[in-house]
Design a protein around this nucleic acid. Structure first.
Length: 312
DNA sequence: AAGTAATTCCCACGTTACTC
DNA sequence: GAGTAACGTGGGAATTACTT
């Protein structure tokens, strides 16, 4: 009897143990299935996120392009410059997501050796002029051109720093060339628009644009004298523009060749004024501004300023 | 279509600044 | 002082736009 009960209890316990093992197996299996489902869901979410990121990058690039064109058009109509804040990429985007699609979508405007469209050249002039102050500071200019490139990129134009620098030098070279023989340039020339931009930059700059000679030792001294002659103007601008202080060199400090070439452009404050006088502005405004310049001692400069009236 | 002017691009060169 | 990189400029070929 005792043996019978003992055997029965043992069978029951074995059975319970077997059921318990099966129960655990089922629990583990369900857990694995749930983990697999979650993993699949995560993959799907990641792919969905990638697709959305690509779509956003597409949208951002096309929006930037549209905005640049609209701003350019409005500026032409109103004659007033519009400074939109630089739109940065959303920080939520993962790097591998945010970079590659942009390369992909901008393939149409990639940094090929294609010619620069007019609006792209104008954008370059604007961008370059805006950070002119940084170019005035001593040091390597490579990173600054990288900045120009990235700013251009934010406007929808994919150009490398090297290409931006090269293009900037070329348009200025051609501008100088055109200035030297203004009678040969007709109104039909398709670069008239950015010529006007450069014209305003040069003509209203506190520093006359340099001669075509690359490095003239005497030019530094000459420039120094010119700067001293405009000291009152410099001081006037320095009141409102702190950064201008970085431009006004200490007395006796000569301007180096590289600085001289970049110093021919305007400071930020003047650039804003220049952009207001761009091609869309009235002749009356330009005359007022010319008078303004003359009052500040801009008259008497023989190179550059006299040619403008011949061209427009 | 041919000719010409305007514009762009590539490359070489000179100067400067920096490092060793 | 030599070597080197960065920078700016000029020359000239190539391309594009316009005129005849």
């Amino acid at each position: 009897m005792a043996g019978f009960f003992e055997n029965t209890v043992k069978k029951v316990m074995d059975h319970q143990e077997m059921l318990h093992r099966k129960f655990l197996e089922v629990i583990e299996r369900m857990d694995r299935e749930r983990t697999d489902r979650e993993e699949t869901w995560r993959h799907q979410e990641a792919e969905k996120h990638n697709r959305e990121a690509i779509s956003r990058a597409h949208e951002r690039a096309s929006t930037s392009n549209r905005e640049a064109q609209m701003v350019s058009y409005i500026e032409r109509i109103t004659g007033q410059s519009i400074n939109l804040p630089i739109r940065m990429a959303p920080p939520l985007l993962q790097p591998e997501i945010s970079n590659e699609p942009i390369k992909e979508i901008t393939s149409t405007k990639s940094d090929s050796h294609s010619r620069w469209p007019k609006d792209e050249v104008e954008a370059l002039i604007k961008v370059r002029s805006r950070i002119e102050i940084k170019f005035q500071e001593p040091g390597v200019k490579g990173p600054l051109w990288e900045e120009v490139s990235s700013l251009m990129s934010s406007m929808g134009y994919q150009r490398s720093a090297k290409r931006c620098k090269e293009k900037w030098e070329n348009i200025n070279k051609y501008f100088r060339k055109a200035k030297e023989s203004p009678e040969r340039r007709s109104q039909r020339s398709k670069t008239c628009s950015y010529f006007n931009q450069l014209d305003q930059l040069y003509s209203s700059s506190l520093i006359n644009y340099p001669s075509s000679t690359t490095y003239m030792p005497s030019r530094g001294i000459e420039f120094d004298i010119e700067k001293q002659g405009h000291s009152e103007v410099l001081e006037a601008f320095a009141v409102g523009k702190d950064h201008l202080a970085t431009i006004t060199n200490p007395p006796g400090e000569n301007i180096k060749g590289a600085e001289m070439s970049s110093s021919r452009f305007e400071f930020d404050g003047i650039a804003e004024k220049n952009e207001e006088l761009e091609e869309g502005s009235s002749e009356q405004d330009k005359e007022v501004y010319k008078d303004d310049k003359q009052e500040n001692g801009e008259q008497g400069k023989d190179d550059g300023s006299g040619d403008e009236e011949n061209e427009n």
